[in-house]
Amino acid sequence: MNNSEQLLRRLPNDIGGLPADAIDRTEHALEPWEKRCHALADVLDFHKIINTEEKRRGVEALGAEMIGKLTYYERWIATFANILFQKGILTPSDLARKMDEIEART
């Protein structure tokens, strides 16, 4: 299997059996926004606005570089935004405007 083919055939998160480092058992308590993001994921699934499998697919679709560099919940929220755009529920300009508004008030 050549490398470019492998990029499509193996999803970035399909890592079972790959070589990896020793386990780092450091734990962090979730930031409040991370917990809100988790609750948002559950509520989006309850309504089937974004089901759990769509979320997983959306995370894979971020690609290996983003998956490697973003934290767990950063990947989730970026995924939600992408899927909501794809579904026409939000537009990129809706989100940009709202983010500016929030940044201005905090």
Binding site: L8, L11, D14, G16, E53, R56
Partner: peptide
């Protein structure tokens, strides 16, 4: 089989 898209059957 190796679908182009999403899957939940790990490569291994």
């Amino acid at each position: 089989r190796s679908p182009v898209g999403h899957y939940r059957v790990p490569i291994y």
